Amino acid sequence: MTTRPSGRAADALRPVSIETGFARHAEGSALIRMGGTEVLCAASVEPRVPPFLRGQGKGWVTAEYGMLPRATHARGPREAAKGKQSGRTQEIQRLIGRSLRAVTDLTALGEISITVDCDVLNADGGTRCASITGAWVALRLALEKLVRNRVLARVPLTAQVAAISCGLTEAGAVLDLDYDEDSTAAADANFVLTEAGGIVEIQGTAEQAPFSQAQFEALMRLAQAGTAHLFAAQLAAVDKALAARSDAS
C-alpha cells in the first residue's frame, strides 16, 4: 500500500466549497470547487419546451458542458472554433442532463425548459462529477425562484443528486481522484447517486486488468460515503442562498 500523491486518506474528499449567485444574471448558479477543479454552473429558465414535448404539459431539463481553453495544463482549442463538439463533451453533457432529469418531476414543472451550463474554469480531475453536484444546486435555486415568483406551486425536485469518482490505484481503492491519480489508475468509476441511496448512473472502466466484484463494492462504499458529504454541502449552499434572499426582500 502506497500513499496517495495528495497525501489524503483513501476515503478523503478534496476540499469542497459551493458558492451560489456567482453568475448574477442566471436564475440559479453555483461555483463548485473540489480541490483544483472549479466549475461554474448556471441555470437558465425559458417559458417553452423543445418541439418533441409541446402540448404534453411536461417540462425539460438539460445541460451543456464545456472547458475553458486553459482549464487544463496545455491550451485546448475552443470547440466553437472547430465547429463541432467532441464526443467527450457530448457524452458528459448528456450525463449531466440525465442526472438532473432523474430527480425532477417534469410534469410538475409544466412547459418550462431549464438549461444548466457547466463551464470548467480549472480542471484537476472529476469535472463531470463536480458539474453534476454543482448543477443540482443551480437547478434548485432556479426552481426556488420560480416558486417565489408564483410560476410554480412547489419545487418539482424528487431528490438530491450528486456524483463522485473512485478508483483503484497503487494506494488501493480511493475516493475522489485528482488528475494525477485518474491518469494512472488501474480502474476508475463515476458514481451518480441520490441522497436516499438511489443509483442514477455508474460509469466504470478497467484501464489495465479486469477488477473484481469485491473491488467494485469497495468503490461503491467509498462513493456512498463521499456523496453523503456532497449532499450536506449542497443543502448548506442552498440554505445560505435562500437565507440571503429572505434578508434582501
Rank of each mutant, 00 (worst) to 15 (best):
G55P: 11
R48G: 00
A173S: 11
R148N: 01
V49I: 09
E38M: 09
T20Y: 01
T205W: 02
V192Q: 11
A162N: 00
V192Y: 09
G125S: 08
M67N: 07
V120R: 11
A189N: 08
S131V: 03
P77A: 09
A243T: 13
L175G: 12
G167W: 13
A26Y: 04
T107L: 13
T184H: 14
G55A: 06
A163L: 02
P69D: 07
S44W: 11
D188K: 02
L100Q: 08
A163C: 09
A135K: 02
A63F: 01
I132P: 10
F52L: 11
G97S: 14
V16G: 12
Q56M: 14
F52G: 03
F231E: 09
M220P: 00
E79F: 03
S113W: 01
E195G: 04
H25D: 15
R8G: 13
V174K: 12
I199R: 09
E170R: 09
R48I: 00
E46V: 00
G87R: 14
A63D: 00
D11Q: 13
I114V: 15
L230D: 00
N149Q: 15
D119L: 10
P50Q: 06
P210D: 05
V151D: 12
I114T: 12
L121A: 13
G28V: 05
S17W: 01
A223I: 00
L157Y: 03
E91D: 14
L13S: 08
R4C: 01
A237E: 05
A138Y: 02
T227W: 05
V155W: 05
F231I: 03
R221N: 15
P50A: 04
T107I: 07
Q56S: 15
T62Y: 07
T133W: 05
E217F: 08
L106E: 11
A43W: 02
R94L: 13
R128F: 07
A186C: 01
A63S: 10
A130C: 12
A171H: 07
Q85H: 14
S249Q: 09
L235G: 01
L106K: 04
A80V: 15
L100T: 08
T227M: 08
A209L: 13
A206L: 06
R221L: 14
A80E: 15
D239S: 09
P47H: 07
D11V: 04
D182A: 13
R154V: 04
I202N: 11
E79M: 10
A196F: 01
D105I: 00
Q215E: 15
H73S: 11
Q160N: 14
A9H: 13
Q224I: 03
S183I: 03
L121G: 10
I132W: 08
I164C: 14
A244E: 15
E195Q: 14
